[in-house]
Amino acid sequence: MKAIMSLGALIGVAGLLLLSGMIVGIIPSDTVRLIEGYMPVQVIAELILFVAGFTGISYMMSSMGMAFPRFWQGISCWAFVLLYLKFRVYPPIPFSVRAMYGTVSLVAVFMWVSANEEDWQKFKQPIMNVLDAKTGGNRLLRYAYLIILPILIGGFSYNAMVPKSEEPIELRTVHPAPPASTKVHGKTYTLQTSQNPYRVNPEGKYDQEYSNANIVEQGMGRLMKPNANPWDKDAQGYLKYVREGGEIFYQNCHFCHGDNLNGRGLHAFAFNPIPANFTDPGTIAQLQETFIFWRVSKGGIGLPNEGFPWASVMPPWEQHLTVDEIWKVVMFEYWHTGYYPRTWD
């Protein structure tokens, strides 16, 4: 038991030192980096480690006879969660969301310290002591609170009232409802029945099974299947068209959507909202191929009235590309991300 607890304490101390060092800037702030794609799991894992660490520290201290009062345990645990959310998590969470998490963790801390009557008494004790002010120290503390609290609260309300400029929040609908059909270069395409004319096997027949078998492998890196190289000189059908789609992508789309289709292109940093990330399972993986065809052809300006963001600068690509080119580039996006387009049934 003791061994486990001391290990926990060690983890806790090391973690705290590392984290505070990284935040203050003594240790390079990228020592332990949040890795894109794994971030939520990583954050939860880190928090679990810290809780284990705190348990260890608290156990060790009480076994060494320096028990940490329950009151301060509760307060510091809550403060830690708040600071962690503010300084560790990136991209930064807006204050309103942090306030929500803060409230939830406050409730959790309260449930923990008031789990039984004895604990609750222990937790309450320091507050009551200050109110009663039986010792000199507590009396001093009481006067300090009497003066500091009004000043703090007055200061906060002043801060809240001084005019400030904060970025207005913009909404974004991820997947607006598509129209029944769309007209591109003079031809009408019914979204439910249209097919990508280039999703064909080497014999030239529409073959979704064949194309799905030749997309890149899911998993780290998303690499192509060993025997399905679109750059193979002999590649026919689907793979050949994937390469042609890629050529169009890397001449037109990667500036915003990025070399890895993750929305981090060369010009992406300048734009708001940031370009769509196709590797995210919430974008093209959720949609039908004809939906993408419609979005690419019509761009941000072609979003239906209820669709946001209004600020999209995605051009209607029908102004720059032919229908064939659009179909090929859509197919390339599915190939490169390793997702299957959804079907209508």
Binding site: G221, R222, L223, M224, N229, H254, N260, H336
Partner: peptide
């Protein structure tokens, strides 16, 4: 395999 998936473009 990595090159022809990511870099060749």
């Amino acid at each position: 395999r990595v090159y022809f998936t990511k870099c060749v473009w």
